[in-house]
């Protein structure tokens, strides 16, 4: 099973983060339609992998969305759409959907993130919660029946294969940045691009 349960630092234990990666997805129209119709069975963040560099960058967006949810500062309808918007460096929501959201006919490689929220009005966070929330298997079964694509591990190496670097440079305004232009080592350059992207996301809207 290529569905990964991710433990993030500084997130209440009642929030569960799942992520999966699908290459060569063929039914983007269908998935897009489900989002537009607010189909409650499709509570996922569908992220176009072309402007994603690494896990760290993706997880930064996940973290800031969950944080926004906790403190009540969501700028979009829910935590899943917030993840897509959190990848952006500005507050233009429709632009963020276009760049990082699923685009029918254009999106090829798709990252899926699901946040399972705690059952309503849970006061005691110290209790482990084997509740009625969907099981890992149920989530994975739903994904594999509905996303037509090849499951892949959500690793930096796999993500890098789907990365459109010119798009990344455009989305994170990285052209003509001295901190990048002076670097000759390719690995170091990638690390710096990642840092700049994470920083741009952290400073979104400032």
């Amino acid at each position: 099973m290529a569905l990964e349960k991710i433990q993030l630092e500084h997130i209440p234990p009642t929030y569960q983060v799942y992520a999966a990666f699908f290459r060569d997805v063929t039914n983007t129209e269908f998935l897009h339609t489900q989002l537009l119709s607010r189909n409650s069975e499709f509570e996922y963040a569908f992220v176009d992998a072309s402007a994603v560099i690494s896990r760290l960058q993706l997880l930064s967006a996940v973290y800031s969305s969950v944080n926004a949810l906790i403190v009540g500062a969501l700028r979009t309808p829910n935590v899943h759409s917030e993840i897509v918007v959190s990848l952006s460096t500005n507050n233009n929501i429709s632009e963020a959907y276009r760049r990082w959201g699923i685009t029918p006919g254009k999106t090829k490689d798709l990252i899926v993130v699901k946040i399972v929220l705690p059952p309503a009005n849970t006061q005691d966070e110290s209790q482990p919660q084997p509740t009625q929330t969907p099981t890992d298997d149920a989530i994975w079964a739903h994904l594999t029946t509905n996303v037509k694509g090849t499951p892949a591990p959500l690793t930096d190496a796999e993500l890098a294969q789907a990365t459109d670097w010119p798009k990344v440079r455009k989305c994170y305004r990285l052209n003509g940045v001295p901190a990048l232009d002076r670097v000759t080592d390719e690995d170091e350059r990638r690390r710096r691009i990642e840092t700049l992207a994470v920083m741009g996301m952290a400073l979104r809207g400032l």
């Binding site: 500062a73 001295p178 901190a179 920083m199």
Partner: peptide, 20 residues
């Protein structure tokens, strides 16, 4: 910090924030 980092000045990178 972001401005400095972009320009290659040795400063710490910003990872995440919640100004409010």
């Amino acid at each position: 910090l972001e401005r400095c980092w972009r320009e290659g000045v040795p400063v710490p990178a910003v990872y995440a924030m919640d100004p409010a």
